[in-house]
Simulated assay, not measured.
Amino acid sequence: MKECLKRFMEWLKKLLLLDYDEEVAVHCIKCSPELYEDVTEGFPTFVITKNDKGYSPGDYLVLKEYDAELEALTGRTVRTSIMCIEEENEGLKPGYCVLGIEED
């Protein structure tokens, strides 16, 4: 019940503060089973990915679990919100970014 109330309040906040001129994008990427588990268990998470999709804070990022051994998607997905983005850091390869995400 507490979780339902929390989700309802988040939905209500989004509804009341919705800016109809603002577009929110949804991006999909593959992720490891370890990252999938971290996100679904509520750990604060950062994702390093190619910066080729025009990511912005407030956009949604759908993580699709990928099994490298089977070379296939598992079918499990989780939707997250992009909280922040770091594009320029001396530890990043050119063309990559760090996304701070939170399960939606």
Score class of each variant (00 low, 15 high):
residue 104 D to L: 11
residue 81 S to V: 13
residue 10 E to C: 10
residue 30 K to L: 01
residue 57 P to G: 02
residue 92 L to E: 09
residue 50 K to W: 08
residue 23 E to L: 12
residue 33 P to C: 03
residue 80 T to H: 04
residue 98 V to C: 07
residue 86 E to V: 15
residue 99 L to M: 05
residue 92 L to H: 05
residue 103 E to I: 10
residue 98 V to K: 15
residue 38 D to C: 02
residue 28 C to N: 10
residue 34 E to A: 06
residue 73 L to S: 12
residue 17 L to D: 07
residue 84 C to A: 14
residue 87 E to I: 12
residue 69 E to H: 11
residue 90 E to L: 10
residue 71 E to I: 07
residue 80 T to M: 04
residue 11 W to Q: 14
residue 78 V to Q: 02
residue 38 D to R: 05
residue 6 K to E: 09
residue 32 S to M: 00
residue 9 M to V: 14
residue 24 V to Y: 03
residue 45 T to F: 01
residue 57 P to E: 02
residue 40 T to H: 00
residue 40 T to S: 01
residue 55 Y to M: 12
residue 22 E to S: 08
residue 95 G to P: 05
residue 104 D to Q: 11
residue 63 L to E: 00
residue 20 Y to V: 15
residue 85 I to F: 03
residue 79 R to I: 09
residue 85 I to E: 04
residue 11 W to I: 10
residue 38 D to I: 01
residue 45 T to R: 03
residue 14 K to T: 15
residue 16 L to H: 10
residue 2 K to T: 06
residue 43 F to R: 13
residue 47 V to M: 02
residue 14 K to R: 15
residue 70 L to N: 10
residue 76 R to C: 10
residue 26 V to I: 10
residue 79 R to G: 04
residue 19 D to L: 13
residue 81 S to F: 01
residue 20 Y to L: 13
residue 37 E to V: 03
residue 33 P to K: 06
residue 4 C to W: 06
residue 13 K to P: 07
residue 13 K to A: 15
residue 76 R to A: 11
residue 48 I to L: 14
residue 35 L to N: 00
residue 16 L to G: 11
residue 65 E to F: 01
residue 68 A to M: 09
residue 7 R to M: 13
residue 37 E to N: 05
residue 19 D to K: 12
residue 97 C to D: 08
residue 96 Y to H: 14
residue 50 K to S: 14
residue 78 V to P: 02
residue 10 E to P: 04
residue 94 P to E: 14
residue 48 I to G: 08
residue 87 E to F: 04
residue 77 T to F: 02
residue 10 E to S: 12
residue 77 T to H: 06
residue 73 L to T: 11
residue 58 G to D: 02
residue 60 Y to R: 09
residue 59 D to Q: 03
residue 20 Y to S: 15
residue 37 E to K: 04
residue 72 A to L: 10
residue 30 K to Q: 02
residue 20 Y to D: 14
residue 39 V to M: 00
residue 56 S to Q: 15
residue 44 P to Y: 00
residue 36 Y to T: 00
residue 37 E to A: 04
residue 71 E to D: 08
residue 4 C to M: 13
residue 27 H to D: 03
residue 13 K to D: 15
residue 103 E to G: 05
residue 59 D to W: 01
residue 89 N to A: 15
residue 43 F to N: 07
residue 2 K to M: 06
residue 95 G to R: 07
residue 8 F to D: 14
residue 68 A to D: 11
residue 65 E to R: 04
residue 54 G to N: 08
residue 25 A to D: 09
residue 55 Y to A: 06
residue 58 G to S: 05
residue 93 K to P: 07
residue 100 G to A: 11
residue 7 R to P: 02
residue 38 D to L: 03
residue 43 F to Q: 06
residue 71 E to S: 12
residue 83 M to L: 12
residue 9 M to I: 13
residue 84 C to P: 05
residue 89 N to S: 14
residue 86 E to S: 07
residue 24 V to P: 05
residue 75 G to T: 12
residue 75 G to Q: 08
residue 42 G to W: 00
residue 60 Y to Q: 05
residue 59 D to F: 02
residue 22 E to G: 06
residue 23 E to P: 06
residue 71 E to K: 14
residue 87 E to W: 01
residue 18 L to V: 11
residue 5 L to Y: 11
residue 31 C to P: 00
residue 31 C to A: 01
residue 50 K to V: 14
residue 28 C to I: 08
residue 102 E to T: 02
residue 9 M to C: 09
residue 29 I to W: 00
